[in-house]
Design a protein around this nucleic acid. Sequence first.
DNA 1: AACCATAACAACCGCATCAAA
DNA 2: GTTTGATGCGGTTGTTATGGT
Length: 329
Amino acid sequence: MDMAHERDASSEEEVMGGDLRRGPWTVEEDLLLVNYIAAHGEGRWNSLARSAGLKRTGKSCRLRWLNYLRPDLRRGNITPQEQLLILELHSRWGNRWSKIAQHLPGRTDNEIKNYWRTRVQKHAKQLKCDVNSQQFKDVMRYLWMPRLVERIQAAAAGQQQQQEGGADTPPLSWQHGGSDGLYESPELPAPDASCWPAEYCAAAGGAQSGGTPAPELSSTTAGSSSPSTDSGAGAQPSWPTQADGAEWFTTACDASSATGGVAMRDTELELAQPPCQGGQTWTTSESSLPGLTFPDLAVADFEIGGFDVDSFWTSMEDDQLWCPTQAAV
DNA sequence: AACCATAACAACCGCATCAAA
DNA sequence: GTTTGATGCGGTTGTTATGGT
């Protein structure tokens, strides 16, 4: 144990009065924390932990709240839309999980980080390349992301057909695996009606679908959110018009701005263009690709570093990476 | 049924930053 | 200007669930 940690541990134990609990949280602890925050709000986590009667460090309480107990958390599978956004934002910002999480309402940096490590890095491993290598980035940009857009379009088309047929259920690929949240708030929008970053909605035409504007993104991962001022409840901006396929999904998608996994300081991040400011539009129709950032090429003809593209797709399908809930049916 | 491997998720650790004293 | 405590972030580890043999 290094000196810094010794100092951390001793100071926190002093604060907490000694016997600190570690490990999994119990339902009783969760309730204590939730009830205390509901009554007094967040912040001053060490004193909060003490006042709430929790034998936990302030850090632990904060993490538990942010990653698990917050009522505005969005639970369930990462949707294809979210996957696409994660890939794009990671290519831009690298492992800046909290920054990326700001653009995925209801998702935590921890969740995105876990997704990246368990799913994305797994495929890099299968391709026998480093996840930060140019090769893998090319695979993501030129194979994976366009295919994701295709999947989204296909799901959108399927949904449109369903709607025309009188069905009102979302496409399978957009359904979530259900909430297992302990304290799911009933007034929160259902996952499928969850908001999308404002810039994406705006780029798609703003008021389309009659959805209310997306809530303003918080300036920090979640630390600024509070139960009483939760921007998620009430506001239910709908997904962009599905009939337009993935055209709503815009991105500058400028490879030159990608940081290649190199961490940037916040000042640099501020200078980096947000995803849609380039005003470009993704479509993946192979015949019409105006303003496209992906090269107009057929996947079958594409070779990156000698990868076996067929096996790549096979591994993707096997992994149910695209549409987990659909594949699970 | 038992064991093992893997995936997914939760939690912790160490460090950096910032603000208040 | 320095110290100290609180907070946030990214990396890592631990635990549990699930599926295959």
